Computed example of a mutant assay.
Amino acid sequence: MMRAFETNKRQVKFADSYGQEQTYITIKLPLALRTTSEKENGKVLEELISSSSFSSDIVTKKDKIRVKVELVRKWFEGPVNDIIRHIEDLLKQPEIRQVSTLILVGGMAESCYVQEKIRYAFSSKRLIIPKDAGLAVLKGAVVFGHQPLSISVRVMRYSYGIEMFKRFNCTKHGSSLKVEVEGKAYVDNVFHVFVRAGDTVKVGQEVTHFSSPVNKEFSLYPIYRSVCSDPKYTTESDCEMVGLLTLKHVGQDDFESKKVKLTMIFGNTELVVKAEGIDTEEKSSSAFNCLME
């Protein structure tokens, strides 16, 4: 039933055309659905539909159910309008403002309604819909798995960085953020950015920063991300922690004079973070999933 529903749903058009009026989509009803409906609700399917808010949009006839096309179009409206707004926002960016061709892929790309709505919204663009558009993403993932370098650059969806202490600067930081550590003024929860949302990075691109240990035994580096291109503090609502990297130090009395090299490696499906002591053998690394929601 669901396969039949998906097939019929994809045939619904944005508007009736060529003189062929499309009023209903028809789906065959399994007997088990009727039986289960009556058992669970104590009413036959027709009674349930007639007492619902869809009574004027859905009708049953023998072993079939018919749904008005206008209702199906309403199901599409919200998601499709969101897609269109997202594409419009992307096309406003200077880097892709001159794009003249759009490629429509994914399961929804096989819907006539989606195709026509996007073609109408971007009439000045060339729209390409590949054969088996619903499988294009899967095929792309397989190609990437065998040939990772087939994707040469990525546009970062998030800003990535670490949470750290920074020396208090009265021209940059509010006095309420100041904390005292061993008689020195610092600011806590600072988002130290390595790469910003919207930046373009090559596969394997490394970004390095240096820091000083604040603890004799170990250093902790919380890894954060944010949808904001210029996050200031990790306590902001759109920031989230993705992991924690720990670097153990060999006992040194002069640890404050030492430097730690922090490296983030971008461009793959995982974010790799490395920490190593300068002039020491201290090393630590970890990988974090960049595809998580």
Rank of each mutant, 00 (worst) to 15 (best):
L271K: 03
G277A: 09
T246W: 00
M1S: 11
F165K: 12
Y158R: 07
K92C: 06
L135Q: 14
A197L: 03
G140F: 02
S150N: 05
D132Q: 09
E217F: 11
S111D: 04
A121L: 01
I83K: 00
L45V: 04
S285W: 13
K68N: 09
M1Q: 05
L91G: 02
R10M: 03
Y160E: 12
K68M: 08
K43D: 09
P213W: 02
V273L: 13
G107R: 04
T235S: 15
H173F: 05
S56Y: 01
G140E: 05
I151R: 12
L138S: 15
D199T: 01
I265D: 13
P231E: 11
G174L: 14
E70G: 09
E281F: 13
Y224I: 10
V273M: 12
K184S: 13
V99N: 06
L104P: 07
Y120A: 15
S286Y: 10
R10N: 12
F122V: 02
V80P: 08
V59L: 07
D230C: 07
A133W: 02
V137T: 08
M292S: 15
T208S: 14
K43F: 05
I128H: 07
I84T: 04
N169Q: 12
S257H: 11
S37R: 00
H86G: 06
Q22I: 07
K178Y: 07
L104F: 01
Y186T: 02
G183C: 08
G174D: 15
L271S: 06
V260F: 02
R196A: 11
M264Q: 14
V155S: 04
K258L: 14
I83N: 02
I87M: 03
S37M: 04
E217V: 08
Q98F: 10
S212Y: 06
E163D: 14
G251K: 15
E88V: 00
I49M: 03
V203H: 13
I27A: 02
S284M: 02
C290E: 15
I151E: 09
V67M: 10
E77G: 02
P231N: 08
N189L: 04
L244C: 12
V227H: 10
N215T: 06
K9F: 07
S52M: 04
E240S: 15
S226P: 03
T171Q: 07
Q20Y: 12
R34S: 04
I65D: 10
F210G: 01
R126W: 00
S211A: 14
F255V: 03
D238E: 10
K64L: 04
I223C: 06
K283W: 13
T235N: 13
V105G: 07
I151K: 10
K68W: 00
T60P: 11
S111G: 05
G267C: 09
I84H: 06
F76T: 03
G145Y: 03
P30I: 03
I49D: 06
I65T: 09
G161N: 03
G161T: 03
L247Q: 14
R154S: 14
D254F: 05
A185K: 10
T208V: 15
G204R: 12
L31Q: 14
S257I: 00
R34H: 01
L48N: 13
E163R: 13
Q205T: 04
G140K: 05
T200Y: 01
S100M: 06
S123N: 13
D230R: 09
E282W: 09
S286P: 00
V142T: 12
